[in-house]
């Protein structure tokens, strides 16, 4: 395995610095929101984490399709990396969302479409990892994983639409603050700036972690191949 390229090293440093700067902006620069005050500060990182989860979801879908077309093992590595990162960041988004929901609308969990879809997506990804675990042959594992990623990539948006349909026809009153839960509180320009900075920061962190995870996957592939050679 080659040592980390210069760009990756720069990204490492940039990620850490940007993360600290984003924390600083959230706590020192962004004003307090009127009704929810401090807990609203979760919003910035919550949205940023969900955003990274989305990026990972899209990256996984693209990698899966490319694998099915090209049959090149390296896209399997990319796909697994994307799935794993998406899984981790959606977990953070779901948990922070619940923590924010508790004081705002009195319950940790509401069956809100976005929250529910994120939870179902996590189930798809866990199923994906279990599927991979049950397969030893690298080629077959890559093929099945790509197929399942594709199925998940198509079904999850449909799931979101169907849950929303379900909710609009049978509205559920979740609390007086339900508009706030959607992130629809009046955002001042400083809040907006903080949110976009957090989004940018987490995008950089996404690229950075994604790269590291792909390198890890390449190393794992190298080890797996050596093991197979040794067995023969």
């Amino acid at each position: 395995m080659k040592p980390q390229p210069i760009v990756l090293k720069v990204l490492n440093v940039a990620s850490v610095l940007l993360f600290l700067a984003a924390l600083g902006m959230v706590f020192l620069y962004a004003p307090l929101e009127a009704t929810m005050n401090y807990v609203q500060k979760i919003f910035y990182f919550h949205v940023a984490n969900a955003w990274v989860g989305m990026l990972g979801f899209i990256a996984a879908a693209v990698a899966g399709v490319v694998y099915l077309i090209k049959h090149d093992q390296k896209w399997d590595i990319v796909e697994l990396a994307a799935v794993e990162i998406s899984l981790v960041f959606f977990i953070i988004a779901i948990v922070t969302g619940s923590i924010w929901a508790r004081p705002s609308w009195g319950a940790y969990w509401t069956w809100e479409p976005r929250l529910t879809t994120a939870a179902i997506l996590e189930m798809v990804y866990i199923a994906y990892l279990l599927l991979r675990q049950g397969l030893d042959d690298p080629d077959r594992r890559a093929r099945f994983s790509a197929v399942y990623t594709l199925i998940g990539a198509i079904s999850v948006p449909i799931t979101f639409m169907s849950i929303r349909l379900f909710r609009t026809i049978h509205p559920v009153v979740i609390g007086t603050n339900s508009t706030a839960s959607q992130g629809n509180f009046d955002m001042t320009s400083k809040m907006l700036a903080t949110m976009f900075f957090a989004l940018f920061t987490f995008s950089v962190i996404f690229v950075n972690l994604f790269w590291h995870r792909i390198r890890l996957g390449q190393l794992a592939q190298q080890v797996e191949q050596l093991k197979l050679e040794e067995l023969q």
């Binding site: 401090y38 807990v39 500060k41 979760i42 990182f45 919550h46 984490n49 953070i92 948990v95 922070t96 923590i99 924010w100 508790r102 004081p103």
Partner: peptide, 9 residues
């Protein structure tokens, strides 16, 4: 709750 949220992150 805010501290709990950032602790989780």
């Amino acid at each position: 709750y805010m501290l709990a949220g950032y602790a989780v992150i």
